[in-house]
């Protein structure tokens, strides 16, 4: 997955979990939970959705790396997607 694809994935998944969030113009280095009203359950749902869509298992210890837009994109772009369930 390239960075553009990872960013599009984040857009798509967040739209499912927190449709009110608009990432346009958001600070890519700030924690998403600060920029928008997202709680721990939302974040867990985001991680679960990543797995569901891409087959990528995000390890618990890597969760903090996915909390910003830049972090999410870098993490996903680094990984080759596994077989998609969709």
């Amino acid at each position: 997955m390239n960075p553009t694809g990872a960013r599009a994935l984040l857009d798509r998944l967040l739209r499912r979990i927190a449709p009110e969030v608009d990432l346009t113009g958001a600070d890519p280095r700030a924690p998403l939970q600060d920029l928008f009203d997202l709680d721990s359950m939302d974040f867990l749902n985001l991680i679960a959705a990543v797995h569901e869509e891409t087959g990528i298992d995000v390890l618990e210890r890597d969760y903090p790396r996915l909390t910003t837009i830049d972090g999410f994109v870098a993490y996903l772009a680094d990984r080759t997607p596994g077989p998609s369930r969709r």
Partner: peptide
């Protein structure tokens, strides 16, 4: 999704 976003915006997560 519009309803979900509407409720979240007003009530919070």
């Amino acid at each position: 999704l519009d309803l979900l976003g509407f409720a979240r915006k007003r009530l919070g997560p």
